[in-house]
């Protein structure tokens, strides 16, 4: 995010290009994308952890000896057969994986868009602007 009174540049490094409306919009978009990127990264991390947990559960189920297991649903445990539980895990993995894929795609899109904006803004303002995190 561009810091208001970040640093003082030497005269040669100064850039007299005025900030136009479209530049302001580009700067805003960049900042907004930064915030969203953090959010997406956090969600991706969380999802990966959840998927790992479900994966662990599936492994446990495979090693189980066919007895009924307890499935935790909305604050209570329910008795379920191994098959039911496995089915449940598979459905959950599929559901969460879909969300994860979508988020990863968004993350890549943000990074790409930020690169374009960086080129644009550094091209116009040189060292007068700082877009590094």
């Amino acid at each position: 995010m561009p810091e208001a009174n970040g640093m003082i540049l030497s005269k040669e490094e100064e850039n007299d290009n005025e900030v136009r409306r479209e530049d302001q919009d580009a700067i805003n978009e960049f900042g907004r994308l930064n915030a969203r990127l953090d959010e997406v990264k956090r969600q991706v991390d969380n999802l990966k952890k959840t998927l790992e947990k479900i994966d662990d559960a599936s492994t446990e189920l495979m090693m189980g000896d066919g007895d009924a297991v307890m499935l935790s649903l909305g604050g209570a445990m329910f008795e379920a057969t191994e098959d039911e539980a496995t089915e449940y895990c598979e459905a959950e993995v599929e559901r969460q994986q879909k969300i994860l894929d979508k988020l990863s795609e968004e993350e890549a899109g943000i990074v790409e868009r930020q690169e374009t904006l960086k080129k644009l803004l550094y091209g116009r303002f040189g060292k007068s602007i700082n877009l590094e995190a």
């Binding site: 995010m1 561009p2 208001a4 009174n5 302001q24 900042g31 915030a35």
Partner: peptide, 20 residues
């Protein structure tokens, strides 16, 4: 709303440094 507000914050910051 949050990203709208962020836009306004950045616009403020840029305005301040431009006036300076």
């Amino acid at each position: 709303d949050l990203s709208f507000t962020r836009n306004q914050i950045i616009t403020c910051e840029v305005n301040i440094s431009r006036v300076y």
